[in-house]
Design a protein around this nucleic acid. Structure first.
Lengths: 120, 120
DNA sequence: ACAATATTAAACTGAAAGGTTAAATTTTAG
DNA sequence: CTAAAATTTAACCTTTCAGTTTAATATTGT
């Protein structure tokens, strides 16, 4: 039933949410929000080996959240938060659904129980 | 440096994003958006054992995305998407950052290069 | 009391995640 | 040319994850 395009969208959401599910990677994004940085700079604050950070960077990159500009032997990383839109849209759907439900509830309460009497 | 409260917030984000990073769990949420359902009903569409689905439900529950109402031997599950707000807020920060950057870029372009001449 | 139903718990498996250290690669500087 | 610097690759380890199957635990209907 899932089309090929949906299939890809699902895998993208997998990658995206998985990328965001790790604290170290979220901290990397926080650092990058301040501006471009070399891999070594990114790794410095972490109590973790450079290859470990390098792998996290790759995860963010594959999720489309990080761009890399290679200049000689140094790799400059920067945030690419457009990718967040997919995650954001997915979440928004459920929030909107929830909001609608609350709205209906409010309407129902206003109609059926205008004085807020019968509480649970 | 991270306070105890932040520590907890981080773990909550871990749980939240991790819960969302699995396709089966997202499909469960999609089903639940349509309304409350028993565990067996939730499991039915999946080509997967009942215990497997049961575990997914627990993951969503621990992330705060799903509520369970036990009535005798049947467990009724429903969506609890308020929990999404934490994820949503986190994402919104980076999107806002991105938007600000685009705004500044637009301003800069409007100021420095009003005719859009110097391209790279 | 009994059998069927709804669900979780336990024990196991294979694969993926996140870390390590040591080597390979590429580029720059002297 | 050679040494140092910036990164990734490779090989490995341990833990977590997602799934399985088989049992255990309620609860309900007869």
């Amino acid at each position: 039933m899932p089309s090929l395009a949906e299939e890809g969208a699902e895998r993208q959401l997998d990658r995206l949410f998985h990328a965001l599910s790790d604290r170290t990677r979220r901290q990397l994004m926080a650092r990058l929000a301040l501006g471009e940085a070399k891999v070594t700079e990114l790794a410095a604050p972490f109590d973790m080996s450079l290859p470990a950070v390098s792998k996290h960077i790759v995860v963010l990159e594959k999720a489309g959240l990080l761009r890399r500009r290679v200049e000689g032997r140094v790799h400059y990383c920067s945030l690419s938060p457009e990718a967040l839109e997919d995650a954001s849209d997915w979440i928004a759907f459920y929030q909107q659904f929830w909001k609608r439900r609350l709205d209906s509830l409010a309407q129902w309460l206003a109609k059926e129980d205008p004085k807020g009497e019968g509480a649970e």
